[in-house]
Design a protein around this nucleic acid. Structure first.
Length: 381
DNA sequence: AAGGCGGGGGC
DNA sequence: GCCCCAGCCTT
C-alpha cells in the first residue's frame, strides 16, 4: 500500500468511527467559540473527567468573554482552585480582556489573532480554529503524537519540539476536506479511548488494519519519549498558628512562580532532611527561617505530616503548632504588625480563598477538628 | 533545548 | 511506585 492510500485509509476509518463513537461532553454541546476556548485551556495536561465539573461551573459563573474579563481576579482563581497550572487562569483572563477590547468580545476567526492570545500555543490555536471554526489547522497534542507515531511507525522522540513540528505537517495533510472539527477531535478521541499509552485496544481500533506500528509489533513501545527528570525533594516546615478566637494565620503566595497568588500556611524550606526530621534541631531552624521573612514565631509541637508532588518538586511538609513571639498585638485584631500578605482567617474566609490542594486539605482537617484529634491520638501512643 | 509549572488516574 | 495526560512560557 502506498503512502497516499495509507493516509486516506486512516482519515476515512478514523472519521467514520468518531461520528458514531464520540463521547457526549459538555463543550461538544456548544458551538460557542468561547466555550471551546475555555475547554481547551482547561484540558491542557488535564484529563477530561477532571475538567468536566470545572468547565460547567466556570461557564455558569462567567457566561461570556465580557463576564470573564470584568471579574475580580480572585474569583477566577477560586474557580480554578484545584485544577493546577494556575498561570492558565491568569493568562485566560488576560486574553479575555484582550478579546473584549480588541475583538468586541468575540473570539476572532483568525489564526494569527487566536495564536497571539495569552496561554494559547500551537496546540490550542489549532484546536480552537478547527473545532470552533472548522478551519483545516492541525491540533497536535500528546494523544495525536502517540496515534501518529504508532500508525505511521515514527521513531522520533516526541519530547523534541522538532518532532511536534513534523507531526503538525503530517496531521495537516490528513484532514479530510471540510471535516477539520470532527477529524481533529477524532484523533484525540482515539488516543484517549483506544490508542492508549499502555495496553492499547488494537482489536477494536478502526484503523488497526493498516497500522504500521502494530504490523511491526511495536505498538507498545511507540511513541519514543525521553524520560522526565524525577522531582526534586524539598523538606518544609509549616506553622499552624492560632489567635485567641481560634483563627489561623495564613499568607498569600507571591504574584509569580509556583502556586502564584494562592493561599497557604506560613512555611519554610529546611535544606537538611535530617535536621528537618529532628524534633531537637527543627524548631530553631524553623524559627530562624520564618524570622528571616519577618514573622517571629516559636514552634511548639509537631502535629501533622503531608506530602505533595509537583512535576518538578516533591514537598515533604511537616506541620508544627506555633505561637507569635512578638506579643499580643499581632495576635489581636490585625493591628498591622503582621508581614505583608499575612492574615488571620476562620472557616468562612477559608471557603472564600483559593488554596493549593495540599493546604486546602490540611486546613479543612484543622477546621473540622480532625488534625488535632489525630495528633492527640498519636501523642497517646 | 531545557526547565518551571499542578494534580489526578490507571496500572 | 511509575507513567502520563486535549501544553505554554521563559530563559
Amino acid at each position: 500500500m502506498n503512502e497516499r492510500t495509507l493516509k486516506a485509509a486512516f482519515s476515512e476509518g478514523l472519521l467514520g468511527w468518531y461520528k458514531v463513537a464520540k463521547r457526549d461532553l459538555p463543550w461538544r454541546r456548544s458551538r460557542d467559540p468561547y466555550h471551546i476556548w475555555i475547554s481547551e485551556i482547561m484540558l491542557q495536561q488535564t484529563r477530561v473527567d477532571t475538567v468536566i465539573p470545572y468547565f460547567n461551573r466556570f461557564v455558569e459563573r462567567f457566561p461570556t468573554v465580557a463576564d470573564l474579563a470584568a471579574a475580580p481576579e480572585e474569583d477566577v482563581l477560586k474557580a480554578w482552585e484545584g485544577l493546577g497550572y494556575y498561570s492558565r487562569a491568569r493568562n485566560l483572563q488576560a486574553a479575555a480582556r484582550e478579546v473584549t477590547e480588541r475583538y468586541g468580545g468575540r473570539v476572532p476567526d483568525d489564526k494569527a489573532a487566536v495564536s497571539g492570545l495569552k496561554g494559547v500555543g500551537p496546540y490550542t490555536s489549532g484546536a480552537i480554529m478547527s473545532i470552533a471554526f472548522n478551519r483545516p489547522e492541525p491540533a497536535v497534542d500528546g494523544n495525536v503524537m502517540r496515534v501518529l507515531s504508532r500508525y505511521f511507525c515514527i521513531d522520533e522522540d516526541i519530547a523534541r519540539p522538532a518532532t511536534r513540528i513534523g507531526m503538525e505537517g503530517l496531521a495537516r495533510k490528513l484532514i479530510p476536506e471540510g471535516e477539520a472539527a470532527d477529524f481533529n477531535q477524532a484523533l484525540m478521541e482515539l488516543g484517549a479511548m483506544i490508542c492508549t499509552p499502555k495496553s492499547p485496544s488494537c482489536l477494536v481500533c478502526p484503523v488497526m488494519e493498516h497500522c504500521q506500528g502494530r504490523q511491526a509489533g511495536r505498538e507498545e513501545e511507540l511513541p519514543i519519549k525521553t524520560k522526565a527528570k524525577p522531582p526534586k525533594p524539598q523538606y518544609r516546615l509549616a506553622a499552624l498558628t492560632l489567635d485567641a478566637s481560634g483563627r489561623v494565620l495564613v499568607r498569600q503566595r507571591p504574584e509569580q512562580g509556583l502556586l502564584a497568588r494562592l493561599w497557604e500556611l506560613p512555611h519554610a524550606e529546611i535544606p537538611d532532611a535530617e535536621q528537618w526530621r529532628s524534633a531537637e534541631a527543627a524548631p530553631a531552624l524553623f524559627e530562624a527561617a520564618m524570622a528571616a521573612e519577618g514573622l517571629a514565631i516559636r514552634a511548639e509541637r509537631h502535629i501533622a505530616d503531608a506530602e505533595h508532588i509537583f512535576t518538578h518538586l516533591h514537598w515533604y511538609v511537616r506541620v508544627w503548632t506555633a505561637e507569635l513571639t512578638d506579643g499580643g498585638e499581632a495576635a489581636g485584631t490585625g493591628s498591622g504588625s503582621l508581614p505583608e500578605g499575612y492574615r488571620w482567617i476562620g472557616p468562612a474566609e477559608f471557603e472564600q480563598l483559593a488554596w493549593p490542594n495540599l493546604f486546602r486539605k490540611l486546613l479543612a482537617q484543622h477546621f473540622s477538628g480532625a488534625l488535632e484529634a489525630a495528633a492527640g491520638a498519636e501523642r497517646r501512643i
